[in-house]
Amino acid sequence: MAKGGVSRKQLLNEPDKFMTFTGKLIAYAKSHLKVILSCAAVIFVSLIIIATVSQVSRRNEVKASERVEKLVAKYSSVLQDEDAKVAYEQVKSDFNDLFDVYGSKRAVKIARIVYGDMSYSAGDADTAIAMYSHALDDFTQSQGLKNIILSGLGYAYLLKKEYPQSIRYFEMITASEEKTLRSDALFNLAWLYETNGEKERSVAQYKQILADFPDTSYGELIKEKIGG
């Protein structure tokens, strides 16, 4: 046999490492059975809780969506016979309850924008600003939706005659690459600059609208403003 070799007898006499490890593992399991079962129970209960929370969350999302639909339908129904202020008063408390109970649900996040529009139409600029500001935090990743919210803020501050703030939000729309409500924002800026006595900036905005949006519905009005 070669020097340093190990005989088959020696190999057979040596304990198998895997068998030794397995034996120790079994022995540990027996001596710690209660602990192992307790840990398994905790994991199992945790999985049940996660599944239940997920299910409840989905169910609440559906409930929130249904409530939003009903409130919008109620507002629209009242609006057929009454003005925007009366319709707004009819749903105000219901919307506040909705925000308290389901405020984190996606349908309700969208509802804040809708309720902001209702508030603005009723002349309640402060509530509109509060709704739009909250919505702006909710939808920072969607530039199209963000422009809609920024426009709402611009109009709400315009309603309060706080022109610098109104200009700020309309300028945020025109500064982005997203075209949603861009022509509307440019037109409002042109009017605001004109109101502030900034004639040159106003004319520049009007011309920008015609250049970027040649088919704009504001076309004839703008041409009258800038004389051709």
Rank of each mutant, 00 (worst) to 15 (best):
M1V: 12
K3P: 00
G5W: 04
R8Q: 12
K9Y: 14
Q10C: 06
L11W: 07
L12E: 14
N13F: 12
E14V: 11
P15M: 05
K17P: 15
M19E: 13
A27Y: 09
A27V: 07
A29S: 11
K34N: 07
K34F: 02
L37H: 02
I43Q: 10
F44Y: 11
V45C: 08
L47Q: 13
I49T: 10
T52E: 09
V56N: 06
V56I: 13
A64T: 11
R67F: 02
E69T: 02
V72W: 00
V72R: 02
K74M: 10
K74G: 02
S76I: 03
V78D: 11
V78W: 12
E82L: 04
D83Q: 09
A84Y: 08
K85C: 05
K85A: 13
K85L: 10
A87I: 12
E89Q: 15
E89K: 14
E89N: 15
Q90N: 14
Q90D: 14
S93E: 15
D94V: 05
F95R: 08
L98V: 01
D100G: 05
D100C: 04
V101R: 13
G103M: 07
K105Q: 14
K109C: 04
I110Y: 03
I110V: 01
A111C: 00
G116P: 00
G116V: 00
G116R: 00
M118Y: 04
S119G: 03
G123K: 05
G123Y: 07
A125Y: 11
D126E: 15
T127G: 04
S133E: 14
A135K: 07
L136I: 06
S142Q: 10
G144Q: 15
G144P: 13
L145K: 07
L145W: 05
K161E: 14
K161Y: 07
E162F: 05
F170W: 08
A175C: 14
A175N: 15
S176K: 14
S176Q: 14
E177W: 08
L181F: 02
L181Y: 05
D184E: 00
A185W: 02
L189G: 12
A190V: 06
L192H: 06
E194G: 01
T195C: 01
E198I: 05
E200I: 03
R201E: 12
V203E: 01
Y206R: 03
L210H: 01
P214E: 00
D215P: 00
D215C: 00
T216V: 00
S217Q: 06
I222K: 03
G228E: 13
